[in-house]
Design a protein around this nucleic acid. Structure first.
Length: 238
DNA sequence: AACCAGGACGTGA
DNA sequence: TCACGTCATGGT
């Protein structure tokens, strides 16, 4: 039985890297995670995904940028980035994209500011929770385990924070990932951890690749996997 | 007018 | 563990 499992593990998942290269050649670098300053700075230049910071993998460079990314990961849960960005801009106008300041804002005002993202009752609470956590970190990199203890931070958000705010090699899985690879009849696994491991075991341990791959999956899914039937005219099928 | 969005949580099998 | 209902606003 044990041997049988080992045989299964040796199954060829080379397509995982192939798909990455294919998507990269289709769409190019996505430059996630988007930061407000760079969005407005680059919006007109690229136009495609809204700019971001293509090929600059040193970002984020400041605590404030890290914190902004973390707020974004919560705000964009089950919501379009467009809505999340609007909420972030409001928070910036209120000058509370700093954990200490955000904590002083009364919950009622915070709810109103982020209303457009939906789930504002719980997300406003989550934003305060992650802010306390961020302050307690005092600049240190959080463990995945500790992140998951924070209310509002699940598997995907934890990995997003680690990968994009802290440049840790944690592959981010989302519903699009499941949808695309299932539709292509390549992977049937739905368990988050198992899927995550599958990707990580078949890719070089490389932060920029992890960052780009997840962003590319989202970009690809927006084009071919938003409305049913999924995958119509998906170029990956050719 | 349904359906989905860069999910997470609480509950009950 | 796993499936399911719930949270809520905005766009197509």
């Amino acid at each position: 039985m044990k041997n049988f499992c080992n045989v299964l593990k040796k199954k060829n998942y080379a397509f995982i890297y192939d798909v990455y290269e294919r998507l990269y050649s289709l769409y190019g670098p996505q430059g996630w995670w988007p930061l407000l300053d760079l969005i407005t700075e680059n919006r007109d230049k690229t136009g495609v995904t809204g700019g971001y910071h293509p090929l600059d993998y040193d970002l984020p460079e400041t605590l404030e940028q890290q914190y902004e990314i973390i707020l974004g990961t919560i705000l964009t849960q089950n919501t379009t980035w467009t809505s999340a960005e609007k909420a972030l801009i409001k928070l910036k106008q209120m000058d509370i994209i700093q954990p200490q300041k955000l904590l002083t804002i009364e919950i009622k005002k915070l709810k109103e500011a982020i209303r457009c993202v939906g789930f504002h009752n719980q997300k406003s609470y989550y934003l305060k929770e992650i802010s306390r956590f961020f302050i307690a970190l005092d600049g240190k990199i959080p463990s995945r385990q500790d992140l998951l203890k924070v209310k509002g931070v699940g598997n995907e958000t934890a990995d997003s924070i680690l990968l994009y705010a802290y440049k840790q090699p944690e592959f981010v899985v989302d519903n699009y990932t499941r949808r695309i690879f299932h539709n292509l009849n390549l992977i049937n696994e739905i368990n988050y951890i198992k899927l995550k491991n599958l990707f990580e075991q078949n890719l070089p341990i490389d932060v920029p690749i992890y960052q780009e791959y997840h962003a590319l999956i989202v970009e690809h899914a927006k084009r071919y996997y938003q409305k049913k039937p999924y995958g119509v005219d998906d170029p990956l099928k050719e």
